[in-house]
Design a protein around this nucleic acid. Structure first.
Lengths: 355, 355
DNA sequence: CCCGTGCCTGACAACGATGTCATGCATCAT
DNA sequence: ATGATGCATGACATCGTTGTCAGGCACGGG
C-alpha cells in the first residue's frame, strides 16, 4: 500500500518531468522499476533480459515516449560510430549531384546511416571548412567532390582510418578511393561520333580549366582529333565557360564567325544549354550538330533531340556508398579509383551531317 | 633538466597516441601543460585566458591536429544544441525539393548549422522512421514535407519545444509553422488564363488525391471554372497521375476522344512532361494550349515555350529556414502558415487560342 | 546440505566535453 | 600593513549512455 503510493508518486513525478524535458534512461528505469543498464539492454536488443522485464521496460519507454540518445551512446560505445556520414557536393541542387546523393542515401539507409549534405560551390575554402564541420560532428565517413588544389589537409584524419571516398574527381596529395566517370573516354567518343558523321570542322566549348573533369574531357576530345588526323589548330577550343549565359555568348561568337564549325561539343550541362540557346537563336539547330556531356531531363523532347554523353550518377552514388561501407567495415586494401563508363545516347542533334 | 625530460617523454607519448586515436582535450592539455578546462576555454573563445596560455594551447592543438568533439560538448552544454537539423523531402533528387534544400542550407550555414537530408518517397512509414532517426541524433530542429495522414505522432516532441517547420504541405493534427505555395490560387490563375484566351473546353490532369497540394490545385482550378460559369461536368478531371508515363497515356486518351479539349492544365512537373509528350506525339503542340504547375529547366526552350505557374522553392526554403531559426532562438508565438505566392510565366503554350 | 553453474540484474566507471566553484596570486584602496 | 578585488586557472561533478564486473537467485548434482 505504502509502497504503491510511493511508486505512483514517483512515476507521476517522472512522467511530469519527462513531458517537459526529454526523458532519459533514468526516467524509464524508474518508471519500470529496474536499473538503467537493463533499460539499455532492452533498447539495444541485447540478450539476457527476461521477457517479463523486457515488457515492463518497453511499456515504460512507450509511455514516456522515450528515445535513445545516439550521441551519448556513441560517446561510450566501443567503435564509437555515430551512424552518420558527410557528403560534400558542388551543390545539392545540381541535378547530377542530387542523383548521386539519392543513390548514396538509398544504399546507406539500409544500414541506418544518415547523411549530412552540403554544397561547396567550387570553393576550396568551403571544402576545408565543411570537412572540419563534419569531422567535429564525428561522422563515420566522408564522401566528397574535391575542389581544393590538394586534399592533403585531411591526411591526419585519413591515417586515423576515417573512411573517405572521393566522387566525380580524384583527390590530389592523398591516396584514397575515388569513383569517377571516364571523362576522357566519353569526350573522345563524342568527337569520334561527330567525325564519323562527316564533320571535320568541330568546336569545343568547355568549363573552367581548374576543374579536373573539364581538363580530362578536353584532353579526350583533343586526343581523338589527333587520332582522326584533324589539325588541332583548326578546331576552336573555348574554355572557362561556367554558366549558360557565357556559353551562349561563346557559341554565338563561334557560329557567327567567318568559317563556323559544323559540329559543336559542349563539355557540361549548362554549357550545352547555352549552345542550344545559341543554335536556336540563329535557327541553326537542324544544321549544326551538337553533342553534350551530361544527360538532362527533356533532352529527348528538344527539336532535334540532343545527343549526349550520359554519365551515370546513380551508379556513381551507389558505388561510392558501397566503397564507403566496405571501408567502414574495416576493408584496408590499397585505395583504388573506380571508373564508371559513360554512354553515348543518340537523339538526333549529334547525327546531323555537315551540308 | 629532469622536468624537461619528463615533459618531452610525455609529449611524445601523447603525440604518438594522438596520431593513432583521435586526440582529446586531455592530450592537448597535457602537451600544453595546462588543465583541460583551460583548453575548453580556448577552443570556445571564452574570455579569461592569458594571451601566453592561449598561444601555448593553440599551438599544442594544432600540433596534435585536435578538433573539438561537438557531440560530447552538446551533451553537457546548457541548451544542448547540436547545430544540426533534419530535412525530410519527397526526394533529395527532385529538382523542386533540392532547390528548397539549397536555400535552406545557405540560410542555416550562416549560423554553422549542418543539415541531415533524407528522402521520403511519399511513404508515411518512412516519414515516421526518419523523424525518429533524426530525433535520436538530437537535431535542433526539423523541416519536413509531410506525407503521413497526420503528424500527431510528433506532438510529444513538439510540446517539448522541438522547432519544426513544415514545407510545401500543411501538417494535420498538430499546430506548427508551415511554408506553402498558394496552390489553389495558382491553379485558379491557370484556369483564368486559359479562359481569358478563349478556351471553354478545358481539361485537368492531376496528381494523386492523397497529396494535399494536388487536392488544393484541383480545388482552385474547379472553383475558377465555377466563377467563369463553365459547367464542371463538361470538363474532364483526371487524377491519380504520379509519373510521366501515366500522364502521357491519360493525355493521349483525352486528346483522341471525340470531343477533345482545346486547353490542358497539368498539376505538376512530371504530369506536364507527360502532357507535352502526348501533344508532341499527336503533333498538337501548337494547337492545344497547355499550362503546367511548376516551372522547370528548359521550359523556354520548348516549341512553343511552356507557360507555367512557377513556385518559388528558393523563397520557400529561405523562409522555412528563417522560421526555424526564429523558433530555435525561442520565438514562441502562435504557429502560422506562410504562403509564398506562385507566379504565372507566359511562354507561348498557354497563350494559344482555340481554333 | 553444499557448492558449482547459469541466468538476470544493477552499481560503477568511463566516454569527451562544459558548468560550477574554489583556489592562488597580483593589484589596489585604505 | 591589511583586507578587498579581480583575474587566471584547474578540480570536480555532470550530461546520457554503454562496458565491466560482481552479486543474487534458482537449479541441479554430488
Amino acid at each position: 500500500m505504502m509502497k504503491d503510493e510511493i511508486m505512483t508518486t514517483m512515476s507521476n513525478r517522472y512522467q511530469a518531468d519527462a513531458a517537459k524535458n526529454r526523458p532519459t534512461m533514468r526516467h524509464v528505469a524508474a518508471l519500470a522499476g529496474v536499473g538503467i543498464k537493463t533499460v539499455s539492454r532492452v533498447m539495444n536488443d541485447e540478450a539476457g533480459v527476461s521477457e517479463a522485464t523486457r515488457k515492463r521496460v518497453l511499456s515504460a519507454s512507450q509511455q514516456l515516449n522515450y528515445q535513445l540518445d545516439m550521441a551519448a551512446g556513441s560517446l561510450r560505445r566501443s567503435g564509437r560510430q555515430t551512424l552518420s556520414i558527410g557528403l560534400l557536393l558542388p551543390s545539392v541542387s545540381n541535378p547530377f549531384s542530387s542523383e548521386i546523393h539519392r543513390a548514396l542515401e538509398d544504399t546507406l539507409a539500409a544500414r541506418g546511416i544518415a547523411v549530412f549534405a552540403a554544397s561547396l560551390d567550387d570553393d576550396p575554402e568551403r571544402e576545408k571548412a565543411l570537412v572540419a564541420a563534419f569531422l567535429g560532428r564525428r561522422v563515420d565517413g566522408l564522401v566528397l567532390t574535391p575542389i581544393a588544389k590538394s586534399q592533403s589537409y585531411v591526411i591526419p584524419e585519413h591515417s586515423r582510418d576515417l573512411p573517405m571516398v572521393f566522387i566525380d574527381r580524384e583527390p590530389v596529395g592523398i591516396e584514397a578511393d575515388a569513383v569517377v566517370t571516364d571523362n576522357a573516354v566519353g569526350a573522345a567518343k563524342a568527337a569520334a561520333h561527330l567525325i564519323a558523321h562527316g564533320h571535320t570542322k568541330l568546336a569545343y566549348l568547355g568549363d573552367r580549366a581548374d576543374i579536373q573533369t573539364a581538363r580530362e574531357r578536353k584532353r579526350g576530345f583533343v586526343e581523338e582529333l589527333g587520332r582522326a588526323g584533324i589539325a588541332t589548330s583548326a578546331v576552336p577550343v573555348i574554355e572557362g565557360l561556367h554558366d549558360e549565359e557565357s556559353a551562349c555568348q561563346a557559341a554565338l561568337g563561334l557560329l557567327r564567325s567567318e568559317d563556323p564549325p559544323t559540329a559543336v561539343f559542349s563539355s557540361q550541362n549548362l554549357v550545352t544549354f547555352g549552345a542550344m540557346r545559341a543554335l536556336k537563336e540563329l535557327g541553326a539547330s537542324r544544321r549544326v550538330a551538337l553533342v553534350g556531356f551530361d544527360d538532362f531531363t527533356l533532352a529527348d523532347m528538344m527539336d532535334p533531340g540532343i545527343t549526349v554523353i550520359a554519365q551515370h550518377p546513380e551508379r556513381i552514388g551507389k558505388l561510392a556508398a558501397e566503397r564507403l561501407l566496405a571501408r567502414i567495415d574495416g576493408d584496408d586494401s590499397t585505395p583504388q579509383t573506380y571508373v564508371v563508363p559513360s554512354e553515348l545516347i543518340e537523339r538526333g542533334s549529334g547525327e546531323l551531317r555537315p551540308r
